[in-house]
Every structure is written in structure tokens, then in C-alpha cells.
Write a protein that binds this DNA or RNA. Structure first.
Lengths: 190, 190
DNA sequence: CGATTAACGCAAGTGAATTTGCAATAGAAT
DNA sequence: ATTCTATTGCAAATTCACTTGCGTTAATCG
């Protein structure tokens, strides 16, 4: 028996196939015409489609898996204490990442999964760290009139909405507006 | 030849089957356990599933069709000139409608379709009227520092995001916050 | 090093979703 | 009335997503 509890064989074959699958999905997402199907991912990754079904169950879970990974790695939240500077840097990077090809598909997987109890745990992995990071940002700037959840509403909500509508915001043109909104509310919440 | 251009036979059989299908989908959406499939809609509506495929092509289009209809009828935007009162009334009704059973499915259809060029026209039918109504509301209140698009970001975006995340906002507890946000930004946009 | 077992590859099978050809029906025009 | 044609109903066919059983590979432990 390899292990009684915890993750089994994390650095071996399991990790290799997961990486191969993630890489394949990234490639497919970058090709707007290509549909993301189990068959396509299997072919591109070299991993048998039976394996995909056994480990993930359906294509949405695979995409969600990647979505959580990618969003986390691409959008670190700064917390230097300068509210405007931190927000500006973060929002600018966020909007830029939302303009990459395939972002719509990723967001759809994320939000579709969010609604279903089955995948709720995976989504929590995405939302909670972000709220905490936002809270850290606010704490560093000694802002107490709004909280992390409010930042989600004022920044992530509009950014994601436009991205999903196929009209992602422009990092250079729209960052200031979103940041100014937060500053206005932080100054005058009621 | 019935007609050369324009809508053909709008009040006849075509309209009846569309109504039957819409009614069936409304029923199915109200039953949380039931999956919305072509077969289920066909059985419930009495319309043959072949007809569904021919007219809509897929189940998503059918749900989108209903989503556009329902959102429009359920969320009229008041414009009496009292900004706070108008917003409060509208947001309260919006949040209440987002708590109805099946709303998640409807939103998903709406936002999924939004990303695809094929359905873009149908989605425009939903977004544009809403922006215009918001603009009327602002005009009535003689507010010039923000526009209809901004209201979409500050109200619809957070409301839809939480609804999609399976945690729709509470009409009584959360309306004031969303309204206050708008008022704060209208007062101090930068 | 050898035993153990989780994860994988493979091939066939199952079933639901979707398509297609043809006949029947019902608005609309003449 | 009758004619025409868009729309629907029906049944058969087909495609595709997904599952299952079994043999193989490879990672971990003693």
C-alpha cells in the first residue's frame, strides 16, 4: 500500500498527465476555432480519453481545473499600502489577462461550475483566496469603510461581465474608471 | 407565396408552438431537479422534438429565447426623477427576480450566448434596451456624471455575478448597498 | 530488489443526442 | 374555394459522448 491518507504519488505519472492535459487545453484555448472536447484534449495531450473521463468526468471539470490555476497565477494582488497604486496595478493586469484568447471559455467554465453544488468546492478555491488578498490590500492601506467582498463587486464583477459578453475592457482605457469607483465608494460608502 | 419579406405568419401556428415551448421551459425551470433537455421540452410542450431542433437548433437557444423575454418583462426600469427611489425600486425587484428558481440556468444561457458571435444579436436585444432605460432613469434625475453603462457595471454586474455563484443577493439586505454605491459614484466619480 | 496497487491504455459496448427523408397540416394568397 | 408553401409530425438512421471490463505500466513501500 503506497499511502494510507493524503495525496498519492503526487510527483509521478499522475502529475505528468495532469500537466500534459493542462498544456493541451491551453493550446486549444488559444485556437478560437477549435472546440474544446474530450476527444480534442485527448488527441492533443496524448492522454487517452478514458483517462480523462476517469479523472475529471467531463470536459467542464478539466477547463475549470485550468481556470483556477491560471487565474491564480496570473493575477497576484499587490499590497504595498498605496491603495490607488495597488488597485491600478492589479486591475490593469487583470484586464490584460481577460483579453487573452480563450478567456471567455475559461470564465464560462468557472461561472457554470459556480452554480452547481458539485463543483462548489473547486470554485471556493478560487474565490476565497481572492477575497482574502483583497482584504490584505485594504488592510495595508488602512481602509475600513469597504471590505474584500465589496472589491469583488466593484472590480471582478464588471470585468468578468464584459469579458463574458465578448467585449473585454481595455487595460489602458478602463482601469482608471474601475479604480476611481472603488476610491469614491471608499471615501463615501453611503 | 405568403410574403416576400418580413416576418411570415406571426399570429398563427408558429406563434402557438413558440408559446407552448416557452411555457414548457418555464415549468421545467421551476422544477430544480428536472434537467432542461430537448426531450423534456418536447414532452412537456407537446411539440415534436424534431421541430425544436429545426427552429432552435439546440436547447441553449431555446432557454436564451425565454431568458430575453423574461428579463425584459420582469424588470421595468422606473424613471420618476427621484434617483434614489427609482434605483431602490428597480434593484429590489431585480434582486427578487434573481432569486426565483431556474434563474441560474437562464443567466448561464444568457451569458454563454453572449460570448458567441452567432447569438450576439439576440443578446443585444437584451443589453441595449436596458442601457437605454438606465439612461432614461439618469436623465429624469438630471444626473450627468455617470451613464447607463456605468449603472450596468454597478448594479447588473454584481447582481448577476452573485446569482451565478449560487448566492443571489437578498432584496431586503443588499439593495441599499448597491444603490448607495451608485449614489456615491454619481456624487464623486473621480 | 520484489511485492503491491494506483493510474493508465486499449477495445468494445451502450445509450442519448442529433440528423434526415417523407408525409400531413394549416396559414396565406389568388 | 383552391392552390401554394412554410411549418410540423413521424419514424428511421446516424453520430457522438460516455461507460465498462480487462490487461499493462509504473510509482511507492517493505
Amino acid at each position: 500500500m503506497p499511502e494510507h491518507s493524503g495525496v498519492s504519488r503526487p510527483g509521478g505519472r499522475t502529475a505528468r498527465t495532469r500537466d500534459a492535459v493542462h498544456a493541451a487545453v491551453r493550446e486549444l484555448l488559444a485556437e478560437p476555432e477549435t472546440e474544446i472536447t474530450m476527444a480534442a484534449v485527448a488527441e492533443r495531450s496524448g492522454v487517452h480519453f478514458t483517462t480523462l473521463y476517469r479523472r475529471w468526468g467531463n470536459i467542464e471539470s478539466i477547463v475549470l481545473d485550468l481556470a483556477v490555476e491560471r487565474v491564480t497565477e496570473e493575477s497576484p494582488v499587490p499590497a504595498t499600502g498605496d491603495l490607488r497604486a495597488d488597485l491600478t496595478e492589479y486591475v490593469h493586469r487583470l484586464l490584460a489577462s481577460l483579453r487573452q484568447a480563450g478567456t471567455g471559455t475559461l470564465l464560462q467554465a468557472l461561472l457554470a461550475a459556480a452554480g452547481q453544488a458539485t463543483e462548489a468546492e473547486q470554485v471556493t478555491q478560487f474565490v476565497e483566496p481572492r477575497i482574502e488578498q483583497f482584504q490584505s490590500l485594504l488592510d495595508a492601506a488602512e481602509v475600513t469603510r469597504i471590505d474584500g467582498l465589496r472589491l469583488v463587486e466593484l472590480i471582478l464583477a464588471p470585468a468578468y461581465l464584459w469579458a463574458q459578453f465578448g467585449a473585454p475592457l481595455d487595460p489602458d482605457a478602463d482601469t482608471a474608471r474601475l479604480v476611481d469607483t472603488v476610491l469614491a465608494v471608499a471615501r463615501d460608502p453611503a
